[in-house]
Design a protein around this nucleic acid. Structure first.
Length: 273
DNA sequence: CGGGCGGCCTGGAGGC
DNA sequence: TGCCTCCAGGCCGCCC
C-alpha cells in the first residue's frame, strides 16, 4: 500500500524531527525481512548524526554522517515511527534506532515485505535495488513525450506499464488505477493503442493524483501512517479504487472490478475506454 | 527477451 | 462465537 505519496508524506513528517539528531544505539530484534537485516552493518550507524532525509521511488533514504545512507522500504505493511525511548516494544518491531533526547525510531512490519539496509551514499544509484529504477514522476521527468518513447515497441496493458518500476517509479496499484480513471483510459487498453494526446493526458493525471495524495497525507486503507502515527485521508478522494458497484463520481457510470496480473483493477464502464 | 504470474507473509474481513 | 478461506499488493524470480 505505501506508494510514492505515502513515502513522501513519511519523509516530510520525519525530516524536521530527525535532521541533526544523533543515533546513539541500534537494535535488531528480528532480522527476518524480505532480505535479512545485516546486524553488523546496521550497528555501525550508532554514534552518527542524521544529516537529511531523501526519497527515491518508494525507498526512504536516511543520510548519516560518513557518507552512508540507511535505506528503508515499507513493503506492504511497514511503519516507521518516532516514539519515546521508554515506550514498550511493538509486535513485529524489527529495527530500533535509539536517538538522543530520549526518543527512538522504530520499524515495524508484520508482513515482512519490507527492507532496511545501509549503503554508501555515493554508490546508491549503482546499488542493485536502485540500478534499474525508472522515471521519478515528481522530478519533472514525466510527460507525454517520455511516455510515448517508453511505450514504443512495447505490448501489454497500460496498467502494467504504469506499475513497471523499470519505466516509472512510485506508482502502485492504487495510484495507477486512479490515474487511469482521471485520464479516461481503460486499464486493459494495450499501450500500442494509445496515441500522443492520451499519453499526455495520462502523464498529467499521474502527476496530479500523486501530488494531491501527498497534500492529503497519503492513502490509509489499513496500515499506513506517517512518522508520528498520523493516518492519511486520500482514501476519501479515491474515484474508483475499491468502489466496485458504486457510481463513478465523474460521470455516474458503474465502477467495475477486474483482475489483471493477479491484481484488482477498478474502472468506470462509462468514462474509461 | 519481455510479459505474466506465483510466492513471500500476516491480519482482517466475511461466510457458514 | 469460532473456524476456515480469501484477499490485500511491492517486488523478485521463474516460466513460457
Amino acid at each position: 500500500m505505501p506508494e510514492l505519496p505515502e513515502i513522501e508524506v513519511l519523509r516530510r513528517s520525519l525530516e524536521p524531527r530527525l535532521r541533526g539528531r544523533r543515533i546513539v544505539d541500534v537494535a535488531v530484534h528480528s532480522p527476518a525481512l524480505r532480505e535479512p537485516l545485516d546486524r553488523r552493518r546496521l550497528s555501525k550507524l550508532a554514534g552518527r548524526r542524521i544529516e537529511r532525509l531523501g526519497r527515491r521511488s518508494k525507498y526512504l533514504l536516511v543520510e548519516v554522517e560518513g557518507e552512508e545512507t540507511l535505506v528503508v522500504h515499507l513493503g506492504m505493511s511497514g511503519r516507521l515511527t518516532l516514539a519515546p525511548a521508554a515506550a514498550a516494544p511493538e509486535a513485529h518491531e524489527h529495527l530500533t534506532l535509539a536517538l538522543d533526547a530520549d526518543e527512538k525510531l522504530r520499524l515495524r512490519d508484520p508482513r515482512r515485505f519490507g527492507l532496511a539496509f545501509v549503503a554508501r551514499t555515493k554508490r546508491l544509484e549503482r546499488d542493485p535495488h536502485f540500478r534499474h529504477l525508472g522515471l521519478e514522476p515528481l522530478a519533472g521527468e514525466l510527460d507525454g513525450e517520455r511516455f510515448t518513447a517508453l511505450a514504443a515497441g512495447r505490448r501489454g496493458p497500460v496498467k502494467s506499464f504504469l506499475m513497471d518500476g523499470r519505466l516509472v517509479v512510485g506508482v502502485g496499484n492504487i495510484y495507477a488505477t486512479e490515474a487511469l480513471h482521471r485520464a479516461g483510459i481503460h486499464p486493459a487498453r494495450s499501450v500500442a493503442r494509445i496515441g500522443r494526446e492520451r499519453w499526455q493526458r495520462l502523464a498529467g493525471a499521474v502527476i496530479e493524483v500523486l501530488e494531491q495524495a501527498i497534500r492529503e497525507g497519503g492513502t490509509t486503507l489499513n496500515d499506513f501512517a506517517d512518522g508520528e502515527g498520523r493516518e492519511g485521508e486520500f482514501q476519501i478522494s479515491l474515484g474508483v479504487y475499491g468502489r466496485d458497484g458504486e457510481e463513478c463520481p465523474r460521470c455516474g457510470g458503474i465502477v467495475r472490478r477486474i483482475v489483471q496480473a493477479g491484481r484488482s483493477s477498478f474502472y468506470c464502464a462509462g468514462c474509461q475506454r
